[in-house]
Amino acid sequence: MLIQRETSAHVAAIRAVTAAAFARPGQPDQIPVEATLVDELRASDAWLPVLSLVAVNSAGVVGHVLGSRAWVDSVPVLAIGPLSVHPDHQGRGVGQALMHAVLGAGDALDEPIVVLLGDPRYYSRFGFRLAEEYGITPPVPEWRPHFQARTLTAFTPDLRGRFKYAEPFDRV
């Protein structure tokens, strides 16, 4: 498996992987909002092409992670999501490889902190903690148990405040 930057040749495969990863039981023909979100983020100013990564093996694209611009008050930070792994390849380390790659790339780009909404049982293995431990509040109070952050090398403790996703997150 190889982790590399997304190219225009990957767009259709990313959409298919994301749709498969987030498919709702009993709704096989409905496109998940996560697939729409990837397309909308890619078309926005918040998309960070250097932090849109794919996992590729002999089967093609089997996973994808997207980094986009977000803010804590007026400070730019990195939002991660969605993280998608095709169901046929889940549990094989694809998501782990993508997360390590995007965290390393974000650190190399001097991002101070990475924020995401997800299962703490999964993301804690990558050093994520509840964002409120860092004084970062979610845009939706009900997200608190799943709203997480991980500091990177450029983090300073004065980075505190209300988190804001890029505008495409508001539309989906």
Rank of each mutant, 00 (worst) to 15 (best):
D45C: 04
W47C: 13
P49Q: 04
V50F: 00
L51R: 12
A59P: 06
A59W: 09
G60S: 12
V61Q: 13
V62F: 10
G63K: 02
G63W: 03
H64C: 14
H64T: 13
H64Y: 15
L66A: 14
L66T: 15
G67C: 10
S68L: 09
S68R: 05
S68F: 03
S68H: 04
R69N: 15
W71K: 08
D73C: 08
P76A: 13
L78Y: 08
A79N: 14
A79K: 08
I80Y: 02
P82T: 10
P82E: 05
S84Y: 01
H86V: 00
H86D: 06
D88P: 03
D88Q: 06
Q90K: 05
Q90M: 05
A97R: 08
M99R: 00
A101D: 07
A101G: 09
A101H: 06
V102H: 10
L103H: 05
A105E: 11
G106P: 05
D107S: 03
A108E: 06
L109G: 04
L116W: 12
L116V: 08
L117Y: 12
G118Y: 09
G118D: 03
D119M: 04
P120D: 10
P120S: 14
R121E: 13
R121K: 13
R121Y: 07
Y123P: 12
R125T: 12
F126Y: 13
G127P: 08
